[in-house]
């Protein structure tokens, strides 16, 4: 894991005046900046804002937006909506796990992909679909997976 320079985040704390009540926007901005919220960053925020570590974890685990794992260059969202599920989303997911050697929520060793599962993406006609960054890939089969990810 790359070393994070904590003092580089100070401008964010300054922006929010190191106020307890600003925990969520502070965490939000930090994640925007470095992509995730590792424990060291949580500790730093705890000290700076005077907010307990338990509360910070409570907030991070409550909002799905927050993540404590680093994000890869690309985020893969595997749709688990009903239509996709019926049409074999599970196979797609398993194949992705095999190809990338990661579980959902994790990031590949080369930091290229982070894989998540999502709710219905609203493109049921193309089910099963995955979304890589903003791009939807539809009508997939497990066999097509290597080809799709090789494009990135």
């Amino acid at each position: 894991m790359a070393v994070i320079k904590l003092s580089a985040l100070d401008h964010i704390f300054e922006k929010y005046e190191e106020k307890k009540g600003n925990l969520i926007p502070v965490l939000h901005d930090i994640q925007e900046e470095i992509g995730y919220l590792p424990v060291e960053v949580q500790r730093y925020a705890s000290k700076k804002l005077g907010v307990a570590m338990s509360k910070i974890y409570g907030v991070i685990s409550f909002y799905s937006f927050f993540t404590t794992e680093p994000k890869g260059e690309h985020t893969i969202g595997v749709c688990m909506g009903t239509a996709c599920y019926v049409k074999g989303a599970e196979d797609i997911l398993n194949r992705l796990k095999e190809e990338l050697e990661i579980e959902t929520g994790q990031t590949t060793a080369d930091n290229k992909f982070t894989m998540t599962v999502t709710r219905c993406l609203g493109t049921c006609s193309m089910a099963p679909v995955i979304m890589i960054d903003e791009q939807v890939h539809g009508n997939l089969t497990a066999a097509k997976i290597p080809e799709v990810i090789n494009k990135y």
Partner: peptide, 27 residues
């Protein structure tokens, strides 16, 4: 301030820092 509600929905529970239990490093 050792514990709080963590996670959400059906998974909600009482947890300590980093969800590492009361004896965790940051607890």
């Amino acid at each position: 301030d050792a514990i709080d509600f963590v996670d959400r929905g059906f998974q909600t529970k009482v947890g300590a820092a980093n969800d590492e239990g009361l004896g965790g490093e940051d607890s």
